[in-house]
């Protein structure tokens, strides 16, 4: 399924050769406080890895994804709210970085169309079934 994405990532490896530094401290290390870690985890699952394009940063072994995890975990540890961190990233990379679209000028149809579908579904059921046999 996500094989394709994964292949793309693998294909990209020869270009971006191995960097020489070890992973950032919190790239592969969980926060000590389980509640904070759960917060960080939930947020990271909805942030897009920028170098692999179709994985969340949790799922990616790309160095930059590791650095992003480090950034998220250190900010959460410093007491920042997950949504503030998301907003900070969206400010820098645009809506693309977040898998959780927010209602905005760019994304309103994503929310308006399901509402329309709901109304339409209600209408069909009501019209089709309102009449007695």
């Amino acid at each position: 399924m996500r094989l394709i994405a994964f292949l793309a990532l693998l294909l990209a490896v020869p270009l971006a050769a191995q960097d020489s530094l070890p992973p950032a401290p919190y790239a592969y290390q969980q926060l000590a406080d389980p509640q904070q870690e759960a917060q960080a985890q939930a947020l990271m699952q909805t942030l897009r890895c920028l170098t692999c394009q179709s994985q969340s940063i949790v799922d990616s072994d790309a160095p930059m994804a590791g650095d992003m995890r480090h950034e998220v975990r250190t900010r959460i540890a410093a007491g920042e709210q997950p949504e503030a961190i998301r907003a900070w990233l969206v400010e820098r990379y645009g809506d693309y970085i977040s898998y959780a679209p927010q209602v905005s000028a760019a994304t309103w149809p994503l929310f308006a169309i399901p509402v329309l579908l709901l109304l339409l579904a209600g209408l069909i059921v009501w019209r089709r079934l309102g009449k007695r046999a």
């Binding site: 909805t46 645009g94 809506d95 693309y96 898998y99 959780a100 679209p101 760019a106």
Partner: peptide, 18 residues
């Protein structure tokens, strides 16, 4: 001319409504 991402935080709740 611009890019957005749509992922689990969108699909899960919206499809759950139905």
């Amino acid at each position: 001319g611009f890019r957005v991402s749509v992922g689990p935080p969108y699909f899960n709740p919206v499809s759950a409504v139905f």
